[in-house]
């Protein structure tokens, strides 16, 4: 039964991992930018959440209502300024610039907000849970986060396939010059895609640092970016369902690793995730659901 519990906990965590990773996947898919600051932006969102909570005194779990729009707007401007400027200088430049951005974010956070760990208070609801049998205990908030994550992915999928802007995002991702000729300003569309990416990573950041982990300025690159990459690689690029599958696989594998390691080897949690990540790279380089591109 303990394994069943691990798998359930892994699935609950996996939805959140997928939410973390979908922005990374979207930015790569649309503007071919590998955003190495992706994890740090989740940490920034967590600090913004602390600020929002201090200023407005809203309950911690509700801080996302303000944090997500703030980060989305920030994402739009980040794309239109720094990332756009680096895009025009070539792909390798975007890699260097986002790497630099990651270092700058960490350093600024360390300088002004110290290396102390923080948590986003989630109140009594954060620990409320219900049990199935004697061994399986499911946190209400964990369950809600999974439902929210899947809902966000569903809405995003629907948005990309049906809406006017979603169609534009697909067109620009396919051929930005041809999209220009059809009258679409690709820079604005890139901005929208970046806004979505930062909005989702902010939501994931608030949830993760509310529920699962403390945060400090370095956890973004040290942990989250790695998780997001693992999810994208395991799931396969270019599909939100792949991202969800990748998130759940990573979540379950980590829980099983943690169970095997026990208290003596807590690092087995991360090791297990990385082993599966490597195995997928070797056996299924296009990921679980990735499309093998020939052209």
């Amino acid at each position: 039964m303990i394994w069943v519990n691990d798998i359930i906990q892994g699935i609950l965590l996996g939805g959140l991992y997928a939410l973390f990773a979908c922005g990374l996947s979207l930015m790569f898919g649309v503007m071919k930018v590998i955003n190495l600051a992706h994890g740090d932006l989740a940490v920034v969102a967590a600090y913004v959440a602390l600020g929002v909570i201090a200023l407005t005194h809203i309950p911690g779990v509700w801080s996302f209502v303000l944090v997500v729009p703030i980060m989305a707007v920030g994402g739009y401007f980040l794309q239109r300024t720094l990332i756009q400027a680096s895009l025009e200088r070539g792909t390798i430049t975007t890699l260097l610039v986002t790497f630099g951005l990651s270092i700058v974010i960490e350093t600024v956070l360390l300088q002004f907000l110290s290396a102390n760990s923080h948590g986003i208070p989630d109140g009594s609801f954060g620990t409320a849970s219900f049990s199935i049998g004697s061994q399986i205990s499911i946190g209400w908030l964990d369950l809600i986060i999974l439902v929210v994550a899947v809902t966000v992915l569903l809405v995003l999928q629907f948005y990309l396939s049906r809406s006017r802007n979603g169609r534009l995002i697909r067109a620009v991702a396919d051929d930005r010059e041809a999209a220009q000729l059809a009258g679409a300003d690709y820079r604005h569309i890139f901005g929208i895609a970046a806004a979505i990416a930062l909005g989702t990573v902010a939501l994931a950041g608030v949830a993760y640092f509310g529920m699962y982990s403390q945060f400090d300025p370095t956890i973004g690159t040290g942990q989250l970016l790695l998780y997001a990459f693992e999810v994208v690689v395991i799931g396969g690029l270019g599909s939100l369902w792949g991202t969800l599958a990748g998130g759940i696989v990573l979540g379950v594998v980590q829980q099983i690793g943690a169970q095997i390691g026990g208290a003596a080897h807590p690092d087995y949690q991360f090791l297990a995730g990385q082993l599966v990540f490597l195995a997928v790279l070797v056996v299924l380089p296009q990921g679980l659901t990735g499309i093998r591109r020939t052209a």
Binding site: R164, R167, L168, R170, A171, D174, D175, E177, A178, A179, L181, A182, G183, A184
Partner: peptide
Amino acid sequence: YQVPRPFVDMTVFENVLMAAQQGG
């Protein structure tokens, strides 16, 4: 374009609809 550059993952209608909405 000399070599056509359709948005290959979109339907023919979506290709044209996007142009009508943006350019038109």
